[in-house]
Computed example of a mutant assay.
Amino acid sequence: MIFLTKIKNHIAVICIGFGLLAAAVVLFSWAYGYWSNGLYGTHFQIDSCWQGISACGMGLVGLFKWLVDSSKNSPVGIFPNNNERKDDK
């Protein structure tokens, strides 16, 4: 339980770390593919690197959307109710 609380409290640092790691992996893959295509004719598709970074970016956007929806759209400690609208009060 303490582990999950620590993750929740440090989610921004975790996301930044994940983004930097993903960017480093993509940069390394792109550099390897670029040089191996030129030197060894490996036919590495460099576009696949950018597809990978796009997938990581979309995952982070989904995570940020979930965090904002979870924390900002309902009062603390109250489970959101889909049947009750703010206009009805």
Rank of each mutant, 00 (worst) to 15 (best):
M1E: 05
I2Q: 14
I2M: 12
F3V: 08
F3G: 04
F3L: 09
L4T: 06
T5A: 11
K6M: 05
K6L: 07
N9E: 13
H10V: 01
H10D: 09
I11L: 15
A12V: 11
A12F: 12
A12D: 09
A12N: 10
V13T: 10
I14M: 14
I14N: 10
I14A: 15
I14F: 15
I16L: 15
G17D: 06
G17Y: 05
F18L: 08
G19W: 07
G19M: 12
L20T: 10
L20N: 07
L21Y: 12
A23N: 03
A23S: 13
A23P: 02
A24P: 02
A24K: 03
A24V: 02
V25W: 03
V25C: 05
V26T: 13
V26D: 04
L27P: 00
F28P: 00
S29G: 04
W30K: 04
Y32M: 04
Y32G: 00
Y34D: 02
Y34W: 10
W35G: 00
W35K: 07
S36N: 09
S36C: 02
G38F: 12
L39H: 03
L39C: 00
Y40N: 13
Y40Q: 12
Y40V: 01
G41R: 03
Q45W: 08
Q45S: 12
I46F: 13
I46V: 15
D47K: 11
S48H: 09
S48Q: 10
S48R: 15
S48M: 12
C49R: 06
C49F: 04
C49V: 05
Q51S: 05
Q51N: 07
A55R: 13
C56F: 14
C56N: 09
C56Q: 05
G57I: 04
G59Y: 10
G59S: 14
V61F: 15
V61A: 15
G62K: 04
G62T: 08
G62H: 03
L63G: 07
K65V: 08
L67P: 00
V68W: 14
V68P: 00
V68G: 01
S70R: 14
S70W: 14
P75Y: 08
P75A: 03
V76G: 03
V76R: 14
I78M: 09
I78C: 03
I78K: 12
I78Y: 08
N82T: 07
N83P: 00
E84S: 06
E84P: 00
E84G: 00
R85D: 08
R85M: 06
K86Y: 09
K86H: 05
D87R: 12
D87N: 09
D88W: 14
